[in-house]
Nucleic acid binder design. Structure first.
Lengths: 339, 339
DNA sequence: GAAAAAATATGAAATGTTTCAGAAAAGATG
DNA sequence: CATCTTTTCTGAAACATTTCATATTTTTTC
């Protein structure tokens, strides 16, 4: 027996013909060591019967960390987008971490310090960020905007054509024989809200339909209770709409609930269309007809684009607008077994 | 000027009249050093104008990063827990980042390398992690378990008493005149699922009630469609339960949907109780009676406990079990305006 | 395509941390 | 209260890690 005592870094180093420092590096900062040297050291370890403790094994290179920023995790919409981005990141051996920050002027400093602190390789924003902040961050690391974006910033984004999608949905309601359609929306400060409203109004005007101003419901935030209250109020006035188009599924759910309260049958008396196709829309009773956007795909592509930009900072990255699809469910379909 | 060069452990040791080992201990394992000795060392540090070392335990110059790990972001339950943890972290000037990983043997390496890569100060787990992995991670950074936990690991957790909560809910259904109660559950590999089932069965047996085996619905995953199909099947057999107790709100929603399909009135014919009080349960039609657990509070306390453990690694951290509350809504309340 | 600049890779030495053995203090025992 | 036992505490030495200087390779520039 050569050495029966404890296995030390120095002994491994001697066996591998390198310095103890190098062995220590293989153990702790593997990416600093040349692959062939790592192999030498690992052979020496094996010869001594040493196995590296599992939690000490580090990646052969410093894995990039990507920050995906969301304004508020309390929104069902994001989960599938995040799944897509995570899938992409993991398949490239990257870490994807989710940060929650409004990314306004107040939180900007903290966000920058986060980027530096974790040495992030890039950022995906799911919220609209003011141009000047976006540019400052883009000077530190590559940036991609996903779903909600700031067109002024001239930075790449992955999203859908909200206006066209809203037009299609409105046209569907009109084609279903409805001409008294109310629109429920959240704050117009969101680009998507603005665009969806524009699509709705364009489709209505194209069909020569006009509606009272009060049917363009404008909520101060995307909130179930508020939407429920607003729709209840509308349903107790003299003229009642024959359909609601909501800029998000949760608002559509609130409209359905309100309609039921006043004993309107959905879809016979009142049709309801939502937007986004979140899980809730299939689970609701009746299930909700909605504009489906490819959330997973959007997240996935954002991350792919970002990784491309990280690997090749000067490549011209082109923005993407995905197609949407109208998913017909019980809240508009008279021949399904809606309750 | 005595020494203008770098301040080292040896110099502090010389100043304090102790060995370098002791200074190192003051910095890293304070509890091993006698209080008077600590004071000597700290005086010597002050005399040398010692400013906190860069990456050592004594508060890094940059803000700590906490990793909150969830098994799957596609679960509505987590969002509020995350809000609580974020609130706590931010109020202490920490970054809280969310990572998505099942934390099994396959993903363990990647997770360890993440911890090292971002130099995380601590971890909060929202999923049950095998003891041996938990211990290995705990050797790197402090660990807190939140909501779902592994009792064997002997590491601190913040959660609720699922068994007692499930008993209370079952007793409420029994007190409401129901004695034919079915239970819908997800995989028993989750501790919460096991405990909730135990609570249900205990309450039933305490009331001398027995149910057919098929009324203990055991789904291979927590999934709306699966639950819907299972309940539909049960509702088309000869004897039909008068109530469903579901181990999660989503399963309760599926039960309601299935009941409606077969024209049972909820709550008159069939009562339904869920668990967790996620947003969905208030939005559903009818709204769902459910066991509410203080999700925000659990997240908040987990993070506070973790920060305490980071600041003071040797402090004895005691686990917490919060109280739950039964929130009565339309799915069980005959006198509310249920539809 | 040569020269300059930047990134990568390594060892010696400096520095930090842990182990181990033993001293000192605190409790237990008869 | 003397003795044994256990626990706490510390330093020397062993060991691990990081820093810094330098050698090597790769990339960029002109």
């Amino acid at each position: 027996m050569s050495s029966n005592s404890k296995i030390t870094v120095s002994k491994i180093a001697a066996g591998a013909g390198v310095s103890p420092a190098t062995v220590s590096r293989v153990l702790n900062h593997r990416h600093l060591v040349k692959p062939e040297t790592i192999e030498q050291v690992e052979n020496a370890m094996k010869a001594l019967g040493y196995s590296i403790p599992e939690h000490k094994i580090t990646a052969p290179r410093e894995e990039p960390v990507i920050i995906l920023n969301i304004p508020n995790i309390n929104n069902l919409f994001y989960t599938e987008v995040i799944q897509g981005a995570t899938m992409s990141a993991n398949s490239h051996g990257c870490h994807l971490l989710i940060n929650q920050s409004p990314l306004d002027h107040g939180s900007f400093h903290g966000f920058c310090s986060l980027i530096r602190r974790v040495n992030a390789a890039g950022v995906i924003f799911l919220n609209q960020v003011p141009s000047e902040l976006l540019h400052q961050i883009n000077q530190m690391v590559p940036v991609i905007q996903c779903c909600e974006y700031n067109q002024d910033a001239d930075l790449p984004y992955v999203s859908i054509d909200d206006c066209r999608a809203a037009m299609k949905a409105t046209e569907y309601l009109i084609a279903s024989g409805k001409n008294k359609i109310a629109f429920i929306n959240g704050p117009l400060s969101f680009k998507y809200a603005m665009e969806r409203q524009r699509g709705f109004l364009t489709a209505m005007s194209n069909a020569d339909l006009s509606i009272p101003k009060s049917w363009l419901i404008q909520l101060p935030e995307v909130n179930y209770e508020m939407a429920y209250a607003a729709v209840c109020q509308l349903l107790t006035s003299e003229v009642v709409p024959g359909a609601f188009f909501a800029a998000s599924d949760m608002l559509a759910a609130a409209a359905i609930r309100a309609a039921k309260r006043y004993h309107y049958h959905v879809p016979r008396d009142i049709m309801v269309v939502g937007f986004d196709n979140i899980d809730l829309s299939a689970m609701y009773t009746p299930s909700i007809t909605t504009v489906s956007q490819p959330k997973f795909q959007e997240g996935f592509s954002s991350c792919e684009m970002l990784l491309e930009k990280i690997a090749n900072p000067d490549s011209a990255t082109r923005s993407i607008l995905f197609d949407t699809e109208l998913v017909i469910r019980e809240s508009t379909s008279t021949n399904s077994g809606a309750i």
